[in-house]
Nucleic acid binder design. Structure first.
Lengths: 403, 403
DNA sequence: GCACTTCGGCAACAGCGTTGCTTAAGTGGT
DNA sequence: ACCACTTAAGCAACGCTGTTGCCGAAGTGC
């Protein structure tokens, strides 16, 4: 199976059921409006058609999937097309940037249905920032009144600094030491009354992009804004590292004994790249970025490099061209069949907020990533619950019981 | 569950059973001679004690596990200790280096029981190299006559160049273009009559080291010999990348526009490091290596750095000290709680051969890594096999049926 | 209009881990 | 020496998973 139950590892029947259901749900999500047939699901998962029938029947009963037309016949009964029901649940994504707060409400398919952007001073007292954030959550929900009676599964919050994804505690948001050790997750959960997941901005963006791809595609998302960071998707899952610190791309040494960097080191790629950009030498900035990207490609053997962030958005073509050139030159040297493609993600910082929302949704689709559950509980260990149904409202699976 | 059934992802009851059995077997392996009790296994896996009892009963029936004494009582019936039966199966590991061939026979626990080293010219015709390799396999088996009636599960072969781990085809062994496109796996399988797995030398070494650790520890193995490469263990599994190319550590740019490297690039860490080592400036070589290691630590947020290879072995202390210094300085700058430990693996190149053997054994313990099965078949999809038992000798699970 | 093909649900089934209970095998007090 | 208590581990029954065998549903093509 995948990494979702990684901590203890033992799997029982509920875990099996959950795993397969997530898998099918994920395929439905990726299929999008076009849908996918039962038999195709069976092929893709390796399960028998009958098993897929049972699983999709459960998903339909829960309101997460629905039949939607049929395909052309190939000489027999035509295949029935199944689709994810996007409005079976929603999630809020927050992007707390240094000077701006973006909030977005997305449905299960990841489509944004409401967006808000407000100025924000991340250096202000925590209380103030939290109020602004909680407000933004409420307003973005109010902006989509059609969804008022639909369950909102939680809030995902993305921000720049190093933090502990598991506990939801910030470490030291670069430039704003006041946040040191602040338990953002719990504080925001109390304010909003919803489950909260926090993560680094680059991780959130990378996760959002990963969900657009099919499973198994490895890529790096390089975010060049006020700083330079990376989000890594390896083995189809977000790689956060042991302390949620992975993606510290900006302070890799690219020039031994080079010019000093604000971090105290010398020759960091961030310093080189931003200095070039500041003096208007975009081509040099792109070349430097490309060298770092090429290092990454070689080191991790990834399939794709995606650029984003405000600075890149200001001159997309130049950055893509420059990075691509370095990577292609290196591929040529090594005799590789085809160089790794370099693309850019549009919309400046918007992917971060959308990805933040996906922090909440991803577990539904078995795409939680290596960090595992944010709640310290074990998920499907020891089924518990003696009797059948009856007994309380939270008996439904997943919290997405929008039946 | 883990990454073993990653391709299609669907899981059925046999897959579940296999997964849990592998998990238990892995815990038994890690526990070593000291053993582990059923209840401890239950705690670690999250399964119920009764489930563990059933699983261990099956493993005992297959000859893979055995009872071995009991622990001290804590006021009740004392816990029975279970142990892996190391001689239930063996594997051969081959290290085809540029000038030397090492072969090793290890048991299920990973303990070497026989070793052979021969000169080898990797530039010789394939036929010749294969003959030498096949000979080494036979001789290492003959060296351990006690194991003559025990099943040998296969041969793992590790070599320097880039290659495709899935198909077992070499790409271009650096410096020996004659191997381009050579299907080493199939050729060696035919010669030895055993299943063969091939992988890069650094990957093999990293895998061997990973199996010594508990699951979940991420680390990088940096191998400095005639070249400089890395093996990455992420999320507890070997990270090979999409094309088995991950770990291309030596040709990362560490000095923009620096001195030219044999690869055609400039300022590659390998060139800088080996140049310093060649002129006897070990401290500088270690500092350069440390800069690359620090980049890696920041980028992937790993738990440990392990150094190895002939060049390192020649002056272990100096390298460890130099690398550690760079990493500790950076940790200090970033205010990290504790710097990532740097250690060295003894024995020069021996870890590569032992790791190569683990390429064969790892799947038994659910530690196959992201690359997935080398045989293109899907493992546990569609159970097949209509009736029970009967029907043929290869009915036993795993091929390790040493009942 | 009928034979054929293909899809998908119903019913019976094997096998997984779980639950409830019993037996095994120790410790410690009297 | 005995008995109450504690802890470990197996037996039997069970619920639920995906699987198999079969049959009705819904199309195509001669």
């Amino acid at each position: 199976m995948n990494r979702s139950s990684s901590r203890s590892g033992g799997a029982n029947l509920p875990a099996l059921r959950h795993h397969n259901a997530s898998l099918v749900l994920d395929l439905l999500r990726v299929a999008g409006e076009q849908g996918i047939s039962r038999l195709e699901l069976a092929e893709r998962t390796g399960l028998t058609p009958q098993a897929v029938s049972k699983i999709t029947a459960r998903l339909r009963a829960e309101g997460l999937a629905a039949e939607a037309g049929r395909r052309a016949s190939t000489g027999g009964k035509p295949r029935t097309v199944l689709r994810l029901v996007p409005d079976a649940g929603y999630a809020v994504g927050l992007h707390l940037d240094r000077d701006e707060l973006s909030a977005v409400l997305v449905d299960l398919a990841g489509t944004p249905v409401a967006t808000r952007t407000t100025p924000l001073d991340l250096g202000a007292p925590a209380r103030e920032v939290l109020t602004t954030a909680a407000h933004a959550v409420q307003r973005v929900r109010a902006d989509a009144p059609r969804t008022a009676d639909r369950p909102v599964l939680g809030v995902g919050a993305a921000l720049p600094g190093p933090l502990d994804h598991r506990s939801g505690v910030l470490h030291r948001v670069t430039g704003f030491p006041g946040w040191n050790g602040y338990p953002l997750r719990d504080a925001l959960a109390e304010r909003t009354g919803m489950p909260v997941v926090v993560d680094k901005d680059t991780n959130a963006a990378a996760l959002g992009l990963a969900l657009r791809e099919r499973t198994g595609v490895d890529f790096a998302y390089l975010h060049l804004g006020t700083g330079l960071g990376a989000g890594l998707v390896l083995g189809g899952a977000l790689h956060r590292g042991t302390r949620t610190g992975a993606g510290e791309f900006g302070h890799q040494t690219l020039q031994l004994d080079g010019p000093p960097c604000g971090c105290g080191g010398r020759g960091c790629i961030e310093a080189l790249c931003l200095a070039a950009a500041a003096r208007g030498d975009i081509a040099e900035a792109a070349r430097v970025l490309g060298a770092g990207a090429a290092n990454l490609v070689g080191l991790l053997d990834i399939d794709r490099v995606i650029l984003g962030g405000r600075t890149v958005a200001a001159d997309e073509d130049a950055y893509v061209r420059g990075v691509r050139e370095v990577i292609e030159e290196r591929a040529r040297r090594e005799g590789a069949a085809a160089p790794v493609p370099v693309t850019v993600v549009g919309g400046g910082d918007r992917p971060v907020a959308e990805g933040a929302a996906q922090l909440v949704l991803a577990p539904l689709f078995g795409r939680a990533g290596e960090g595992g559950d944010q709640e310290e509980s074990g998920r499907a260990e020891r089924t518990g619950r003696g009797r059948r149904g009856e007994e309380g409202p939270d008996d439904e699976r997943e919290g997405a019981g929008a039946g």
